[in-house]
């Protein structure tokens, strides 16, 4: 059990996918202008990431390995992720049309979120089992959501401040993200 706890601390804080491994930066910069959309995006990504982490593990173990097709893993994981995203899109559309409209193009874009593919591939690289894949995917998603939501709240505040012209918009967002990444270096050595 403590292994899983360590894995969660590691993926959420120490090796945070966004701020330490720099994966999934596109939605991090793109959807973080408003707290509300950031929360929706975080929920959707959490759902997709956990599900795709597990299902890509299953596809690898039960289909690719028996057929000796491990070299096809990247393309088959992309397929798995696309299916999971499509499924999520349908769920969101039915349950919350408003969130569906707000997320807009970013929901299909989860397909190309490198954190999602990264988690699937890292699971294989680190030879995680089923439960480990589940925790790894979930931890990565919680870490992503945590920094995403905090960053969105902070950006709402920064958008109101008197930032010098050349730094307005995405530039100051990048600078802030860099400083946050600096702060996350403080967690080094925890695990």
């Amino acid at each position: 059990m403590s292994d899983y706890a360590i894995m969660l601390v590691s993926t959420i804080l120490v090796n945070n996918f966004v701020l330490v491994q720099f994966l999934g930066l596109c939605p991090f910069m793109g959807v973080s202008n408003k707290l509300e959309t950031a929360m929706g995006m975080s929920l959707a990504t959490t759902f997709v990431l956990t599900l795709s982490s597990v299902s890509s593990y299953l596809v690898y173990e039960w289909i690719l390995l028996p057929l000796d097709l491990a070299f096809l893993r990247t393309i088959s994981f992309i397929l798995v992720i696309a299916v999971v995203v499509q499924f999520t899109e349908m769920v969101v559309r039915k349950t919350s049309p408003l969130l569906y409209r707000v997320l807009g193009v970013f929901l299909p874009l989860i397909t190309t979120n490198c954190a999602v593919l990264g988690v699937a591939l890292l699971n294989i690289n680190k030879s995680h089992g089923f439960v480990e894949s589940l925790f790894y995917g979930f931890g990565a998603a919680v870490g992503f959501s945590l920094v995403m939501v905090f960053f969105a709240a902070m950006r709402e505040r920064i958008n109101l401040s008197d930032v010098p012209k050349p730094f307005q918009g995405a530039a100051i967002g990048m600078v802030t993200a860099g400083f946050m990444s600096l702060a996350f270096m403080g967690f080094a050595g925890l695990v």
């Binding site: 707290l35 939501v149 905090f150 960053f151 709240a153 902070m154 709402e156 505040r157 400083f179 946050m180 600096l182 702060a183 996350f184 270096m185 403080g186 967690f187």
Partner: peptide, 17 residues
């Protein structure tokens, strides 16, 4: 202290909400 302060600064706008 420095890292803890920065991390909580990062969380402060969200705490305010």
């Amino acid at each position: 202290i420095a890292f803890a302060t920065l991390l909580m600064n990062f969380a402060a706008p969200f705490i305010d909400h």
